[in-house]
């Protein structure tokens, strides 16, 4: 039987989207896939298809016209997924902050797991970021395995809560009991 979890850990696929960056970080991503830095030793492949990807690499401060594409690509990726913001302008807007067509960083639109600073982010940092993202991906896969259980939460007034959405909290209660 296929052990999807194992394969996902051994060979995460990358989706790269440029949301208005200056190309600096994009060529550094290419460079980190090339022989000297060789990100492919972690099994990473750059793919163009959101439906096959596990890691979403975003560069650029999110321009007004690209924001819908960004959200669209994020929603098309299957769970579990990790988002990495590459470069200073992706994290905060950087030098482009407060320009009229710029949305000041991607965390205004999608949740970010790893922030990589630098203008432009160096390949070493990108590799570190992706290795970090692999840990988060593994953690998220484990989280997904927990069964869906509905339970009654003490604080909400008779409300029924999905277990996965408050997984951490439930774990704590379990330990106490």
């Amino acid at each position: 039987m296929f052990d999807l979890k194992k394969y996902r850990k051994k060979s995460p696929w990358i989706l790269h989207y440029n949301a208005g960056s200056c190309n600096g970080c994009d060529i550094e991503i290419l460079a980190s896939l090339s022989p000297k830095y060789d990100l492919e030793r972690f099994g990473v492949i750059n793919t163009g298809n959101p439906k096959q990807s596990d890691i979403f690499l975003v560069t650029g401060p999110v321009t007004y016209r690209s924001r819908e594409r960004l959200v669209e690509l994020y929603t098309q990726m299957p769970e579990p997924k990790v988002v990495i913001a590459v470069g200073s302008c992706t994290c905060t807007g950087g030098v482009f902050r407060d320009m009229y067509n710029v949305e000041d960083g991607i965390d205004r639109y999608i949740p970010v797991d790893v922030y990589i600073a630098g203008c432009a982010a160096s390949p070493e940092l990108i590799i570190d970021g992706i290795v970090k993202a692999l840990e988060i991906l593994e953690q998220k896969s484990k989280e997904m395995e927990k069964p869906h259980k509905l339970f009654r939460e003490a604080t909400s007034e008779g409300g029924i809560v999905n277990r996965r959405h408050s997984a951490l909290k439930v774990g704590e209660i379990d330990e106490e009991n």
Binding site: G20, T63, F96, M99, V102
Partner: peptide, 22 residues
């Protein structure tokens, strides 16, 4: 037009002339 950020306007409203080179 996906990458339009508005740098030409920022050069005349946000930054002084000695910073624009960067």
């Amino acid at each position: 037009g996906f990458v339009h950020r508005g740098i030409e306007r920022a050069c005349t409203t946000k930054f002084k002339f000695d910073a624009i080179g960067y």
